[in-house]
Structures are given as C-alpha cells and as structure tokens.
Amino acid sequence: MTVYGYARVSTPRQNVTPQVKALRAAGIPKDRIFQDKSTGRAVNRPGLNGLLSVVQPDDIVMCWKVDRLGRTFLECAQVAAGLLERKVIIRALTGGADSSTPEGRFMLHALLAVAELETELRAERQAAGLEDAREKRRKAGRQGIGGGRRPTLTSRQREHARQMKAEGRSITEIQRLFNVSRGVAQRAAQGRETVLDDLDFKKPEDRERLRRANAMMAAIEARQIDIEEAIKAA
C-alpha cells in the first residue's frame, strides 16, 4: 500500500504551496505528491494523469479537500468513481472524507454534493450580478449589455483616432487630443473602443459638450484648425 498526494489550484493567482505543505505534514514524500496549476479551463491535467498512471489497488490518494479532485462536481465524481473502481482509497485532510469506512464514504458523497451546490450558487450570484449591472446601465441610458466600463468616445472621435493612427500619429497625440487614458486611445486607434451617441447624454450641459466635440472634429477633418491647436483647446 502506497500513499500518494494530489494538490490542485484553478488560477495563477492561487498558491498550491499550502496544500503541498499539508500533504507533506501528513507524511507523504515530495516525490509522491502530484500537482496541477491553473486548471480553470484546462482539459489536460498532467499531475492527475501522472497520479492515475501509478496508483494500484489498496493505494491511498490523499488531498487537502475532496473538491481538489476536479473543477466541477461531475469531474470530481468521475475521478472519484474511477479511483474507487480500481479499489484505490480516497482520503481528504479536511472534511472527513475516507472511502475506506462507511462513514467516510458517506462524507465523501456529501462533500461532493456540497461542492456542486457551491458551484451552482456561485454561478447564480454571477448571473444575478451581471443582470443587475445590465439593468443599471439601461436605467442610466448607457450603451452596452455587460457590467463593464462606460464608453468615453463618440463614433466620430473613434473614427478620427483611427485616421490619425493611419497617418502615423502617435498614441500619445490621440490620448492628448481626446483627453482619455492611453488604453482608450489605443483601442480607439484600433477601432475597438465602444462609442457614445446623443442618447447617452441626459443633461443639457453634457449634450452641449458632445456638440462642441463633434464641431471640433468637423473642423479638424476640414483642416480648418491644426491638431496641436485642437489639443490645446480640448
């Protein structure tokens, strides 16, 4: 009978070290601990594949929590079922899951069910938050369907930014002209910046600001004023 450890994190921001330390503290040598990192959407998990290639009947697979076996309830259940079919014992350092005892097997299935419930609740909260953001944007009269940033340029400004880029103007010049962040200027120059229209402005003073901006763009396009003069006036 050999004891193996398995540790997994889903994103680069998460740290697998605490799980590995816990497994080492449980007496598992470092060379028998398999790890997977950043598995949020990864199909291939070399750590898990390596573990499954060496375990034998009566071996023990130990993890920090049973939900580390997979990214979803279905995947956890599939991995657990495959190990149990091969007569491999599954144990978790936290939660009490232990497939070698009736109580532990019950706890294993209960923890997997809880993991699935947490996943569903998280998805519901994310969906509710996104819908709330959509509703707020609709009430505010803003474009877009998501909860992201508010558009900052008009369609005419974006088109002029693209022309400036095509003429060899720098992003800094575009940024200064429209008084926007460098990221907005770069997206506008590439035609990726979401644009504003008259419906986005509810206050008269904002509509007037848009009118002046469009007038300035028209003057620039007609070569009536120099771009440097426009930057100073903006």
Rank of each mutant, 00 (worst) to 15 (best):
A7Q: 06
T11R: 15
Q14W: 10
V16Y: 05
T17R: 12
T17V: 13
K21W: 06
K21E: 15
L23H: 11
R24M: 12
G27E: 07
R32V: 05
F34A: 11
Q35D: 00
D36Q: 11
G40H: 08
V43M: 11
N44C: 05
R45S: 09
P46I: 10
G47S: 09
G50I: 07
L52R: 13
M62P: 04
V66N: 06
D67Q: 12
L69T: 06
G70R: 12
F73Y: 10
C76F: 03
G82T: 12
E85P: 03
V88S: 08
I89G: 00
R91A: 09
L93E: 02
L93H: 11
D98L: 04
S100L: 06
G104L: 04
R105Y: 09
M107D: 01
E116S: 09
L117G: 07
T119R: 15
A123D: 12
A127K: 13
A128W: 03
E131R: 15
D132V: 00
R138N: 05
R142L: 15
G144V: 08
R150A: 14
T152M: 13
L153Y: 05
L153S: 03
T154N: 12
Q157R: 08
H160I: 09
H160M: 13
K165G: 01
E167R: 13
S170F: 04
I171N: 10
A185P: 07
R187Y: 12
G191I: 04
L196D: 05
L199Q: 13
D200K: 07
D200Y: 08
D200R: 02
F201G: 07
R209H: 11
R211L: 09
N214K: 06
A215W: 02
I225Q: 00
I227H: 00
I227T: 02
E228L: 01
E229Y: 00
I231V: 14
A233S: 14
